[in-house]
Amino acid sequence: MSEPPSADVLYLPRWRPRGSRPGAHRGRDAGGLGTFRDQVPFLSLPDARRIDLRATLRDPFEGVHVRRFEARVPVEIWALVDLSASMRYRGAGDRMALAGELCAGLAASATRIGDGFGLIGCDAAIRADLTLMATRHRSAALAMAGKLSGARCAAGSPEGLLEAARLLFGRPRLVFLVSDFRWPPDLTRRVFESLALHDVVPVILADSAEDEGLPEWGLAELDDLEGAGRRLVFLRPSLRRRWIARERERREALTAAAAASGARRPFALVDRFDAQALSRHLLAN
C-alpha cells in the first residue's frame, strides 16, 4: 500500500503472552517497567530497587516486600488470507484490495508497537509467494500486504489454511482469518479447530452488493467464481428478503462455528476497510 492507512488498529490479546523481549502487551511474567502486579517477599525477588517501603513498614512481622510489575511483551499478529477463487469478487469494492488494505493496516499497527506481523496466503496449499514469517520490519510487512491486492486467486477451496494452522504451532498468536468464508461447513469447522490454540479473529470480507445492495427487481445471470456454474435468478422483493435472510443465517452459522472453537466473534468488513470499527470490535470482543 502506498498510502498510509487511515488509523491504527488497536487490539488486545486475550491471553497473557510469555516472553522476555519487551513489547507492548501485558505479559504473563513479572519484570520490567509495566503495570504494578503484586508484592512479593524480598527473599523471593531480591531486587533492592523495587522495595515497597509502605508495604514493608505496614508488615507486623517486619518482612521486606518488593513490588513486582507486569512484563510488557510483544505478540505476533498473523493474517491468514484465503486466496480461493471467490476472493476475486468485485462488488462495491474489490475483495482482494480490501484484504490488502486490512493487512496493510494490521502490519502498520503491529510493527508500530513492536509486534511482529506475519502473513500466509492459502489456496489449495500455502502460497509461498504470499507468505511472510512474522517480522517486525515495517517495510517488509507492508510490502507483503501490498502484494496481496494483485494476488492471483484460482483454486476452489482453501484447504491450505489447515497447513497454515500447522505452521503456527507453539505459542499462541493473534490470528486474523481473512476470508469471505464461502466454504463447505466441514472445512469451516476443521479450520477453526486447527486454530483453536490461537486467539482467532475471523474477518468476513463482505460486500453490500451481495445482500443489501441487491436490486429489488430484475433478472440476473449469476456466474460462480469457483466454478459451480451459472444460474439465472429473478430478483423480486420476496426473493431479496429471503436472500438477505440466508446471508444473515450464514453469518450466524459462522459465528456459532467460531464460538465453538473459542474464536472471537467474526468481524464483517463491508465494502471498505475501517480501522476504527475494527478496533472497536477487537476491544469489545
Binding site: 456466474d223 467464481l225 426473493l239
Partner: peptide
C-alpha cells in the same frame, strides 16, 4: 453475467 463468489448464496 455477474460474477458472484457463490451462486449458492441465492
Amino acid at each position: 453475467r455477474h460474477a458472484v463468489p457463490a451462486v449458492a448464496a441465492a
